[in-house]
């Protein structure tokens, strides 16, 4: 554990909490892509199966349980409890275009051809693109509420901070995982356009609106 890894985890945690607070306080999931949230739930379920087979630390277990519970809870809030507020007309990204290629890629490019390892690899590949339905929705409507943009900023920062963690681990521990690094870079790059808008608009007190 190093400072970048911890900051990344906390940023990820903050993103999820911001999203849950937004939905709970406003009793609405307007502007949030249910499709991205379903993909994140799939990411956590396929990645954290090792909760049942291995123990790493109390921290690790607690975070995994929280990520699993909160992602499934978010899907429940969007598709059941606050279904009426879900903006499905704007949430039209075809997720099979993300699920199928990442599933195929995980079967071809993995560390070891075993069930656990392939599911882990699939979750890493899927996570890297899981935000696309959400970004597509923002670009379709041309705007995002401030709270939604804070959520996206925290979620994007998390993988960026992990990149610093991987650089640290490469230099000081001689450890690197090429699958996680490449996917993590792709994931962070997808947020770049959003980061630019967030810094130039939202931080100056303006609403996130895309140029017409």
């Amino acid at each position: 554990m190093n400072i970048f890894r911890l900051a990344g985890d906390l940023s990820h945690l903050a993103a999820i909490i911001i999203l849950l607070i937004k939905i709970w306080k406003t009793r609405s999931c307007a502007g949030i892509s249910g499709r991205s949230q379903v993909l994140f739930a799939i990411v956590f379920i396929t990645r954290y199966l090792d909760l049942f087979t291995n123990f790493i630390s109390a921290y690790n277990t607690a975070m995994k349980v929280f990520f699993l519970g909160s992602s499934i809870g978010t899907v429940y809030l969007m598709y059941l409890k606050f279904k009426a507020t879900y903006d499905h007309n704007h949430d039209t990204f075809r997720i099979e275009f993300l699920l199928l290629p990442t599933a195929l890629l995980s079967l071809v490019l993995n560390h070891e051809f075993s069930v656990m390892e392939i599911l882990w690899t699939f979750s890493i590949y899927l996570e890297s693109v899981a935000i696309l339905p959400q970004l597509f929705m923002v670009s379709k409507t041309g705007e995002a509420e401030s709270i939604t943009s804070h959520y996206l900023f925290a979620l994007g920062s998390y993988r960026g901070l992990y990149i610093l963690n991987w650089i640290y681990r490469y230099y000081f521990e001689g450890f690197y995982d090429i699958i996680a690094i490449v996917a993590g870079c792709v994931q962070t790059i997808l947020y770049c356009d959003f980061f630019y808008l967030y810094i130039t608009k939202v931080l100056k007190g303006k609403k996130l609106q895309l140029p017409a």
């Binding site: 123990f55 656990m116 390892e117």
Partner: peptide, 10 residues
């Protein structure tokens, strides 16, 4: 190395 040692990150 086991699965969990390789994948100790979240």
């Amino acid at each position: 190395k086991s699965f969990s040692q390789e994948h100790d990150e979240l």
